[in-house]
């Protein structure tokens, strides 16, 4: 993060359904009130994008996301089989006189074209998803990636979506659930990762995985406990032990669930949450500047 650019905050969770999108969109709405026209929300959960349900943006543009796949010129190809031999993903096969490609299996590494001794293979574009661009009535800039139906390679779409991150804006990235490649690809774009969890043994187990992922990637993180209830101290104790900031508690509350079901963020439905959400963001900024100061002093 350079001095001029505004920090990018990712919102992630070890499992789906913890309230990640509810928190990310609520944070964006609250921040847009005090920083009008300066907030960007990017939905990187390309396998099941749903931030639009809470933010109701008007989409003005779709850009395709392409990956490279091999195209074989059968008139030039000698059927030597080197491409199939070198492909680590079995995405190309030479079966007698036929050369068959399997675009779903292809990782776009290009080794087939590289090893082809006669130059029979060219890499061509294949669309695997798209990125929608738009804005909300509150002036939040909205970006959302979507993997094409039937496609399974989420990571290139996640990368294309996350790279719409605008340094001049306060960017909130809504990450895909879990800790696998698409989640890592998303949080890599961020300066700080907010991990949303629940105060259950399952929530804690997933949180531990998420924290380890952030630490290995060198991304500072803090925790939001959603559906919090009295008498469930497991997550809180873990955070104390590990020295992780608990940024916010959102209680188990029927009214919140009902508002969510109506397609409203916390900030839309409950004005009293505004200050708390803005405070979370200020805590994140403070934590980042303290880390930066500590690094300078070292």
């Amino acid at each position: 993060m350079s001095e001029r650019s505004k920090p990018t905050v990712s919102v992630a969770a070890g499992k789906g359904g913890t309230g990640k999108t509810l928190f990310a969109t609520s944070l964006a709405v609250a921040l847009s009130e005090i920083h009008p026209g300066q907030v960007q929300l990017i939905d990187c959960d390309v396998e099941e994008p749903n931030a639009d349900i809470l933010l109701h943006p008007q989409i003005t543009q779709h850009t395709p996301v392409n990956v490279l796949v091999p195209q074989v010129d059968l008139d030039i190809c000698t059927r030597c089989g080197l491409c199939a031999k070198h492909c680590q993903f079995s995405a190309i096969a030479v079966i007698r006189d036929a050369v068959i490609t399997f675009p779903d299996l292809c990782a776009a590494c290009g080794v087939c074209a590289y090893v082809c001794p006669v130059g029979a293979i060219t890499e061509v574009n294949r669309q695997v998803g798209s990125v929608a661009h738009g804005s909300t009535v509150r002036g939040i800039e909205f970006v959302q990636g979507r993997l094409s139906v039937g496609d399974q390679r989420a990571t290139p779409v996640t990368r294309a979506t996350g790279s719409c991150n605008d340094d001049s804006m306060i960017t909130i990235l809504d990450a895909p659930p879990g800790t696998a490649c698409p989640m890592q690809e998303t949080i890599e774009f961020s300066d700080y990762c907010i991990l949303v969890t629940e105060p259950t043994p399952f929530g804690l187990a997933n949180l531990e995985d998420s924290v380890e992922t952030c630490r290995r990637m060198g991304i500072p993180c803090g925790v939001v406990i959603n559906r919090d209830q009295a008498g469930r101290p497991g997550v809180e104790d873990y955070c104390t032990r590990e020295g992780i900031d608990v940024l916010l508690h959102i209680p188990e509350d029927r009214e919140i669930a009902e508002a969510y079901a109506r397609g409203e963020t916390l900030a839309d439905a409950f004005p009293q949450w505004h200050d708390e959400l803005v405070r979370v963001y200020e805590d994140v900024i403070r934590s980042l500047s303290q880390t930066a100061t500590a690094k300078v002093e070292e």
């Binding site: 993903f89 079995s90 995405a91 068959i100 299996l105």
Partner: peptide, 11 residues
């Protein structure tokens, strides 16, 4: 193999 097992066997 992680993926592409059938293709590898066919090869």
């Amino acid at each position: 193999a992680g993926t592409g097992a059938g293709v590898a066997a066919a090869q």
